[in-house]
Amino acid sequence: MKVVAFKRELQGTGASRRLRNSGQTPGIIYGGTEAPVTIALDHNALYHALKKEAFHGAVLDMELDGKVQKVLLRDFQMHAYKQLVLHADFQRVDANQPVHVKVALHFENADVSPAVKLHGATISHVANEIEISCLPSALPEFISVDLSKMDVGTTLHINDLTLPAGVTAVTHGNNLTIATASVPAGQVSADAAAEEKK
């Protein structure tokens, strides 16, 4: 994905307010061997890009002064109640250095799992994203989580995930829970009552 940015000379609250009033969003690019650069981006293009999941976890091509550099979106601030992006932070990416990024989880095959199909259980998604480490070229848009083997009472952990080649989960020593399968309390008592009637 491509992002077009412009160098921003004026800084401070007043300059940022004037920038936003003119339909632009202030931002910054940092990291790597170069000094941080303050930038301005087209607000509407950035606002719509932020709605795309891939924009948050992909290596982006940022064009600045005719040069294209690889960056990651690191942070952004939204207005409390207006549809307004207040600021965006981008980090330069070195193709030979691993990056640490949070990537979305896509849950699949819950409807064919024994927990749902046989027992009418509910599968709860405990985490919707995980932190990974990989080279920029191996960065996945998302990670698929196969729920087809989950049964009632089972828990899926981060170590159970099948990660793409070259990608490792950053767990900080914790085998975090990703999903759990349980039968809703009301259904358990209804099933018990049905058994008693037999």
Results as ranks from 00 to 15, higher is better:
Met1Asn: 07
Val4Trp: 00
Arg8Pro: 03
Arg8Asp: 02
Gly12Thr: 08
Gly12Cys: 05
Thr13Asn: 14
Ser16Cys: 13
Asn21Tyr: 01
Pro36Arg: 06
Ile39Asn: 01
Leu41Gln: 03
Asp42Val: 09
His43Glu: 12
Asn44Phe: 02
His48Arg: 15
Leu50Ile: 06
Glu53Arg: 14
Phe55Ala: 05
Ala58Leu: 01
Asp61Pro: 00
Met62Glu: 03
Met62Gly: 07
Met62Gln: 06
Glu63Ile: 09
Asp65Trp: 11
Lys70Cys: 04
Phe76Tyr: 15
Phe76Ala: 05
Ala80Thr: 14
Lys82Leu: 09
Lys82Trp: 01
Leu84Gly: 08
His87Thr: 09
His87Met: 08
Ala95Val: 12
Pro98Arg: 06
Val99Glu: 12
His100Asp: 14
Lys102Gly: 02
Ala104Phe: 11
Leu105Phe: 03
Glu108Thr: 13
Ala110Trp: 00
Val116Pro: 03
Lys117Cys: 04
Lys117Asn: 02
His119Glu: 13
Thr122His: 11
Val126Ala: 02
Ala127Trp: 05
Leu139Cys: 08
Glu141Ile: 09
Asp151Leu: 03
Val152Pro: 05
Thr155Asp: 00
Leu163Met: 10
Thr171Cys: 09
Thr171Lys: 11
Ile178Gln: 05
Val183Asn: 04
Gly186Met: 08
Ala190Arg: 14
Asp191Glu: 13
Glu195Gly: 00
Lys197Leu: 14
